[in-house]
Computed example of a mutant assay.
Amino acid sequence: MATPASRMQRPWRFIVVGLANTAIDICLFLALTWLNMAVIPANMISTTVALAFSFFVNRFYTFRAGPGMIGQAVRFLVVTMFALWVLQPLVIWIVSLWLVPLLPEMWALLIAKLAATVVSLIWNYLLYSAFVFRTPADAKDRG
């Protein structure tokens, strides 16, 4: 069984994985919108591709989770899909409403996507730690 990552290492590992995951997501999102795909479908595709990367790397590297991959995958999907398909489109829509009149559309979309990514990264870390990849050692630490 893999040993759980220390509580001090987890945030840093999550940041590294998050940066790689975000690069995958944003590059694919921008490429798809550049190819004239609508914003919401482009976001759904880019985040879904990044999703698979995120689950496996977070499971094995960030949290070093033990057995129970199927349950972890289900919880991961619930938490992550809410962030990707509810939080991100909502943030993109709200930020775009404010920025599109002020900036070129591609810059407004990039800023909106970055804002949405920050919101979902915070959401994901908190719920991955407490719910998705919680280890027996975590349960003992919390009482």
Score class of each variant (00 low, 15 high):
Ile40Glu: 10
Ile40Leu: 13
Ile40Trp: 04
Ile40Lys: 03
Ile40Thr: 10
Ala42Glu: 07
Ala42Lys: 03
Asn43Thr: 05
Asn43Ala: 03
Asn43Tyr: 00
Asn43Ser: 15
Met44Gly: 01
Met44Trp: 01
Met44Glu: 01
Met44Tyr: 05
Ile45Trp: 00
Ile45Val: 10
Ile45Leu: 05
Ser46Gln: 02
Thr48Tyr: 00
Thr48Pro: 00
Thr48Asp: 00
Thr48Trp: 05
Ala50Thr: 02
Ala50Glu: 06
Ala50Trp: 03
Leu51Lys: 00
Leu51Tyr: 13
Ala52Glu: 05
Ala52Ile: 14
Ala52Phe: 15
Ala52Tyr: 11
Phe53Thr: 12
Phe55Gly: 08
Phe55Tyr: 15
Phe56Val: 12
Val57Arg: 00
Val57Tyr: 09
Asn58Asp: 08
Asn58Gln: 15
Arg59Met: 10
Arg59Trp: 06
Arg59His: 13
Arg59Ala: 07
Phe60Asn: 13
Phe60Pro: 00
Tyr61His: 14
Thr62Gln: 08
Thr62Arg: 11
Thr62Lys: 04
Thr62Val: 13
Thr62His: 06
Thr62Gly: 02
Thr62Phe: 04
Phe63Ile: 14
Phe63Ala: 13
Arg64His: 02
Arg64Phe: 04
Ala65Tyr: 11
Ala65Glu: 13
Gly66Pro: 05
Pro67Gln: 14
Pro67Ala: 14
Pro67Cys: 01
Pro67Leu: 10
Gly68Gln: 07
Gly68Thr: 09
Met69Lys: 12
Met69Asn: 06
Ile70Gly: 05
Ile70Phe: 15
Gly71Cys: 06
Gly71His: 09
Gly71Thr: 06
Gln72Lys: 05
Ala73Pro: 00
Ala73Leu: 15
Arg75Pro: 09
Arg75Phe: 05
Arg75Tyr: 07
Arg75Ile: 06
Val78Arg: 08
Val78Asn: 07
Val79Arg: 07
Val79Glu: 07
Thr80Gly: 01
Thr80Lys: 10
Met81Ala: 12
Met81Lys: 03
